[in-house]
Design a protein around this nucleic acid. Structure first.
Lengths: 146, 146
DNA sequence: AATAAAATATGCAGGTAAGTAAAACACTTG
DNA sequence: CAAGTGTTTTACTTACCTGCATATTTTATT
């Protein structure tokens, strides 16, 4: 029940870019400033390109640039670009049928968590996160609590 | 960002036992009815024993039995028995320091998710889940939504 | 035009942790 | 002592993460 590094890296990159939404950023620049393994970053950025969140340009003067304004990119969109459809628990077996159908006690709980999670992700944009960061509403107990 | 199979299995087992809180259950019984690999189940049950949620007895007539009433076992307790402290994102490097300290844009979001998650888990007991199941408040779109 | 250089894109291999399975072990009852 | 049951160890498989090497595309230079 943790955010994967992949999603973490994607969010780091996008918020980094969100500070200057019109600018172009090189992989090296993102990788070094955000402490992301550059080989992995390439693959992550590819997913964001495919999803239409960013655009990539190859060659000298190449790099990545946001395709939408930060206020128009929700965390949910980023999440789904990386992880696919939001799904708290995977209760299906291979035939796409639940072995406990009608006897599952925990589904309602995870459904509730899913709803509040979607609400949170949907309601948070890149712009929100960037603003919070600039205004210092972050690093609350950064070291001790996590 | 998914519930691990381990936690899923733990919850399945406990809710199964929660229906008859005073009864003793064999591993085979739990494994077969809940579709849990029996070898893995053994290890999971051990963690619940160590945490004081259940008690185990070896030998013929052995098995597992709840140590508290279902209304006194919160989902949070189960979660922590299996996964350890609730932590949405692991933003520390090896030296237990965050590389982005003071420049992290996403921490506030995950903190909010963590809070609502803790509230949900803390406020849900085994008894709640068992009751929901018995009253049929489960399997909502079981097949399609997950 | 041709070539070199710079950047992203892609494929392959290894490490680690979760999940699974099988076997050997240890305890308890009759 | 024998049988039944939980405990522990070992090994295998898969997915996530990382690093290295190579390919592909575009710009700049000559």
């Amino acid at each position: 029940m943790q955010v994967s590094k992949t999603l973490d890296y994607a969010v780091r990159s996008l918020t980094f870019m969100g500070v200057s939404p019109e600018s172009k950023f090189g992989m090296k620049e993102i990788s070094e400033s955000q402490h992301i393994p550059i080989n992995y970053l390439a693959k992550i950025m590819r997913r964001l390109v495919n999803r239409g969140i960013i655009r990539s340009m190859v060659g000298p003067e190449g790099g990545y640039i946001l395709r939408k304004m930060p206020s128009e990119v929700s965390l949910r969109e980023v999440y789904e670009a990386i992880e696919g459809e939001i799904r708290i628990i995977d209760c299906m077996d291979k035939e796409n049928v639940c072995a406990l159908y009608g006897n599952c006690a925990q589904l309602p709980v995870w459904d509730r968590l899913k709803v509040s999670m979607i609400k949170l992700l949907e309601g948070t944009t890149l712009d929100d996160m960037v603003s919070d960061m600039i205004n210092g509403n972050n690093n609350s107990e950064r070291v001790v609590s996590n």
